[in-house]
Every structure is written in structure tokens, then in C-alpha cells.
């Protein structure tokens, strides 16, 4: 038997997911981390994977991963969200 519906913490369950802008910035940060030292230096090793140098495999796979992440972020977010948030964009651009 379910708990009384109006007592369950609806406010927590319906917590607003972070917007597309935040996610895209996060993907950007992830890309920065993937394509720069120290991660790049870690994979700069004299090892071969499937007959291909590890560095090449890593860079191309990381690249593909980032593209997939971007595609997921863009395609998953509802079409309307961007329009709603557009109205509030541009706030707080007054400081250098």
C-alpha cells in the first residue's frame, strides 16, 4: 500500500534538472580535460592497442565520446527549454 500521495516529498522528486547551458559548459570542461595534459600525457605511452598507437586510439575515442555527449545533451533537452531560458540570458554581463 502506498504512502499517502500528498505526503511524499514531491518537491524533491520534481527537482528541476540543470539546464542545457550548464550541461554544455560541463561538456566543454570535460573536453578541456580530455585533450590536454595531464590526461594526454598519461596516454602518451609507447604502447600499441589493436596494432594502433595508444595515443591515437585515445584521442580519437575521447573525441568521439565528447561528440556523443554533445549530441545527447542537445537531443535530450526539450525543444522548449532553450526558448524559455532565452529570456533570462544576457543578465549579469555587466562586469569584465
Amino acid at each position: 500500500m502506498a504512502r499517502a500521495p500528498h505526503r511524499s516529498p514531491a518537491s524533491l522528486r520534481m527537482a528541476r534538472p540543470s539546464g542545457i547551458r550548464e550541461r554544455l559548459v560541463a561538456a566543454f570542461m570535460m573536453g578541456l580535460a580530455l585533450f590536454n595534459p595531464p590526461l594526454l600525457a598519461v596516454f602518451n605511452a609507447p604502447t600499441m592497442l589493436w596494432g594502433i598507437p595508444l595515443l591515437f586510439v585515445y584521442v580519437f575515442l575521447a573525441w568521439l565520446g565528447l561528440i556523443l555527449a554533445l549530441a545527447l545533451i542537445i537531443e535530450r533537452s526539450a525543444e522548449t527549454e532553450g526558448d524559455n531560458r532565452a529570456a533570462t540570458e544576457g543578465e549579469g554581463g555587466d562586469a569584465p
Partner: peptide, 24 residues
């Protein structure tokens, strides 16, 4: 070797920010 690639990784990173920068 791999040094031809930053020229394409940079735009990929920037593309992530296009919704904020380019759209404006």
C-alpha cells in the same frame, strides 16, 4: 604526428559553447 589535430579539437570544444556564444 598527432600535432595536426588541435586545429580540429579546438573547434569541437568551441562548438560546445555555441549555444551560448554563437546564438547570441
Amino acid at each position: 604526428g598527432i600535432h595536426f589535430l588541435p586545429i580540429y579539437l579546438g573547434p569541437t570544444l568551441m562548438a560546445a559553447l555555441w549555444w551560448l556564444v554563437l546564438r547570441k
